[in-house]
Every structure is written in structure tokens, then in C-alpha cells.
């Protein structure tokens, strides 16, 4: 089972861990950051929804390869993916996060929270960050969005501090997905059995690698849930600001999940 979890994860990762590590100091230039910040809020939301959807497609492929997942009824497969896909992406983000300069791998390079500033407000005219800050014209339209981005970065930072191996990240993702306490499951007992097997295998791995202390140091599951609700709240606030935006502006899978 341990081999299956790791193999499933590695096969469905867009980037190899070594590659992400090797490139962890390749950051966006200030001009490139400005270009992201100059985008309109709607453009940046669509861009991020696109990248997130790509990551979620990989989570679906990961789930399909996990032992036992495809034996569940399709209703439960969908329940688990709807509830867990974003959480899995957030856990996996620690692999693509450089905790030393608080940047994340996004569209080919590493960038900090400022890269995503346009998500919370209209793009500025390209002036430097310092100049725009604190002025009346810099009033934020979705102030909660910056809190969401900071919270996501904080979460990645706290997970990075645990220095998880690929196997550990793979297990954390599998356990987020195969969670028998998700509401609306039709065959909860079946999911509970799979979850139980995963937990045993994970504990055995941690014992073997003398990493048993990891379990006590993991962020509480409520933190992931809170991030997902924050994302939904911001998406709803965005839709209220842009009521005329065509639904087709977001990828179909993103619309289906959120």
C-alpha cells in the first residue's frame, strides 16, 4: 500500500520534487511581478482558477490510482473529490514552496504573496509597490482575498517546517482524500476501511523512518477546512463584484467543484 500511495503520487505530480528544489531561487523579476499586479481582478481570477483546475485534474488522477478508490461507488468518489481536491492541492503546495523567501512555484517561477495582489483589487497602472501602498486609490475591493492568500502561504510554511518526504506528502494527500467523515457518503464503512488501512501503513512508514513525532506536529484538519471555506467566500464575493462575468470564464471543472 505504501508503494502504491507513493507511486500514485509521483506519477501524477506535474513537477518532480528535485526539479522544484533545484529551481527554488528562480523568482519572478520585479517587472514580471508588476505585470501580474497590473492585470485586472477578473483576469487574475481566471488565471488562478485555470492553474488550480490543472492541479485538481492531477488530484483526480492520483485518486484513480489509489488502491481501492475506484472500487467505491461513483457517488462516493465524487463526494470525496469534491470535498478533498482543494485540500490535497494545498497540502501538495508545500513541495512547491520555498519557506526561506516565502515564495511559491507558479507559472514557471517562484513568486510571493504580492504576485497575487490583483486577485483582491483592480490592477494598478504599473507603479511600484511602495508608491501604491497606503494611498486612497489603492483601496481593496476584496480585502479578504489578501487574508486568504496569506493564510495559504502560512499553511504551506507550517507544513514545510515539518520537512516531509515525498512518501509522507503522498500519505497526507491520500488521507485527506480518503476521509470517511465527509458528509453525504453512501458507503461510509467502505471508505472507513480504506482510511484505516492507509493510517496503519502511514504509521508503519513513520515508525520505520523514525518520524513518529510527525503526527503530533501536523496542522489540525480544521485549518484546511477553513482555507477551503475562505476560498469559497472569496469566490462568492468575486461573483458579486462581477455579476456579468460569463460562467464560461472559469474552467468547467472549477465551476463544478466550487
Amino acid at each position: 500500500l505504501t508503494q502504491n500511495v507513493l507511486k500514485s503520487y509521483l506519477e501524477t505530480c506535474a513537477q518532480r520534487t528535485e526539479e522544484l528544489q533545484r529551481r527554488r531561487w528562480e523568482t519572478f523579476s520585479s517587472q514580471e511581478v508588476c505585470a501580474y499586479q497590473r492585470q485586472s481582478m477578473a483576469e487574475m481570477w481566471q488565471r488562478c482558477a485555470g492553474r488550480l483546475t490543472e492541479a485538481i485534474q492531477q488530484v483526480v488522477e492520483f485518486a484513480k490510482r489509489l488502491q481501492g478508490f475506484m472500487d467505491l461507488c461513483q457517488h462516493d468518489q465524487i463526494v470525496l473529490l469534491k470535498a478533498g481536491a482543494l485540500e490535497v492541492v494545498l497540502v501538495g503546495m508545500c513541495r512547491a514552496f520555498n519557506a526561506d523567501n516565502r515564495t511559491v512555484f507558479f507559472e514557471g517561477k517562484y513568486g510571493g504573496t504580492e504576485l497575487f495582489r490583483a486577485l483582491g483589487r483592480a490592477g494598478d497602472s504599473g507603479r511600484g509597490r511602495g508608491q501604491a501602498e497606503g494611498t486612497a486609490s489603492d483601496e481593496e475591493l476584496l480585502p479578504g482575498c489578501h487574508d486568504l492568500i496569506s493564510s495559504i502561504f502560512d499553511f504551506a510554511q507550517s507544513l514545510c517546517a515539518l520537512h516531509c518526504s515525498d512518501s509522507e506528502v503522498a500519505f497526507l494527500c491520500a488521507l485527506v482524500l480518503l476521509n470517511a467523515s465527509r458528509p453525504w457518503l453512501q458507503e461510509q464503512a467502505k471508505v472507513a476501511v480504506l482510511q484505516g488501512h492507509l493510517e496503519v501503513a502511514f504509521r508503519l512508514l513513520l515508525r520505520r523512518t523514525q518520524r513518529e513525532e510527525l503526527l503530533a506536529r501536523l496542522p489540525p484538519a480544521g485549518r484546511l477546512r477553513a482555507l477551503c471555506s475562505q476560498h469559497l467566500e472569496q469566490l462568492q464575493a468575486f461573483h458579486r463584484l462581477h455579476p456579468g462575468l460569463l460562467p464560461a470564464a472559469f474552467p468547467p471543472l472549477y465551476r463544478e467543484l466550487f
Partner: peptide, 16 residues
């Protein structure tokens, strides 16, 4: 079921 058309399709497809 119709509500989750894309997820259904992804789950039914072979490994892509």
C-alpha cells in the same frame, strides 16, 4: 449526476 459531468468523465476515462 449531470451536475458533475466533468468529474464523471475524468473518473471514467483511462489514466490520462
Amino acid at each position: 449526476q449531470e451536475k458533475h459531468r466533468i468529474l464523471h468523465k475524468l473518473l471514467q476515462n483511462g489514466n490520462s
